[in-house]
Simulated assay, not measured.
Amino acid sequence: MNEPQDPEVRSLDARSLRGLAHPLRMRLLDALRFGGPATASRLAEKLGESSGATSYHLRQLAAHGFIEDAPERGKGRERWWKAAQQGLRLDEALLADAGPEVRGAADTYLHEVATAQTRDLSTWLGNRHTWSQEWNRTWDLSSATLMLTPELTQELIEKMHALVETYRDRAVDEGDAEAARVRVHTRAFPLSTE
């Protein structure tokens, strides 16, 4: 699928994929992408990890260009980090790479993405009582099973992504009291008939 290049979306190559494909690194990157700049100690507290492990993995993310210093936030010796991009794109070719290390990193990456999406949903379900009645009426957890060819499935995926993109331009100001970040997960995959 040929998508327009977005400077906020980074395409993963074999080297960067190996640098990212670790559960804590992916959680740290998501925390910075969606929660804004933070220090290693703040991230450690938020994620329930040690500061040492968090610092090490932040340095690895920086070495691979996923995060960068946020000097405008730092005071004294505190080192603040921020995400360098807001999105990631995985090239399908990495899933069939000749090197088992690259294929393993791609598998780890995909499983961690699925785990993060499941964690997002579980967090919403566990905390939805803290949200307004309006938000409790405005969410979706549905599925559909269709009989499709690979071509029709690709068409459906492209149309879903295009629809979501139309709402990016309609996004409201973060200062709007009624606004919240809304996570949209899409999944389309064949089911075994056995």
Rank of each mutant, 00 (worst) to 15 (best):
W139K: 04
D176K: 14
G35C: 08
T54G: 06
P37E: 14
P71R: 04
W131V: 00
R170M: 11
E134W: 01
E194A: 06
F34H: 14
D169H: 15
R168G: 09
S51H: 14
T130D: 13
S51M: 06
L43V: 13
E151H: 07
E178Q: 12
Q117V: 09
R79K: 15
F189A: 12
F34D: 14
N127G: 14
R77L: 11
S122P: 00
L12S: 00
Q86R: 08
D173W: 09
L156K: 06
T166V: 10
R42I: 05
G52S: 14
M26I: 07
E155T: 12
T39I: 01
A70D: 10
R168H: 14
L20F: 04
A53P: 04
W80F: 15
L163W: 12
H57K: 13
L125E: 13
G104M: 01
T39D: 09
A93W: 09
L94V: 11
E194F: 10
M1C: 09
D91R: 06
P100H: 10
G52F: 12
G36H: 02
R187E: 14
L88A: 01
D97N: 15
A63D: 15
N2H: 04
F34L: 13
D169C: 07
H22C: 09
L146M: 12
R137M: 12
G52N: 13
D30H: 01
R15N: 11
A38N: 05
A53Y: 01
V113T: 04
D30T: 02
L121R: 04
E174N: 11
P4S: 03
Y56W: 14
R10T: 03
R15A: 11
A70G: 02
E178G: 02
E45A: 12
R33D: 00
L156T: 07
T145V: 15
V184P: 03
E158H: 05
A188E: 01
E165K: 02
P23K: 04
Q60T: 07
L125I: 15
P190V: 07
V184M: 08
V172F: 02
R59L: 05
V164T: 11
G19K: 05
D120G: 06
P23Q: 03
A93N: 11
L43Y: 15
V164H: 10
A93K: 11
W81T: 03
M26F: 03
T145L: 09
Q133W: 06
P100D: 15
R79Q: 10
I67E: 03
S132V: 03
D169Q: 15
H185Y: 03
R10Q: 01
R59P: 02
E134S: 07
R128I: 06
W135C: 01
L152Y: 06
F34K: 03
H111F: 03
D107P: 04
A40Y: 08
V113E: 02
K75R: 14
N136H: 01
D6P: 07
M147F: 07
M160L: 15
Q5G: 05
A63R: 08
D6I: 10
D30E: 06
K75H: 12
E194P: 15
V102Q: 00
E134K: 00
L191Q: 11
A53K: 07
E101M: 12
N127C: 10
G48A: 10
W139E: 11
L191M: 13
V102S: 02
A179N: 10
V102W: 08
L12K: 00
R77V: 12
R170C: 02
A105Q: 09
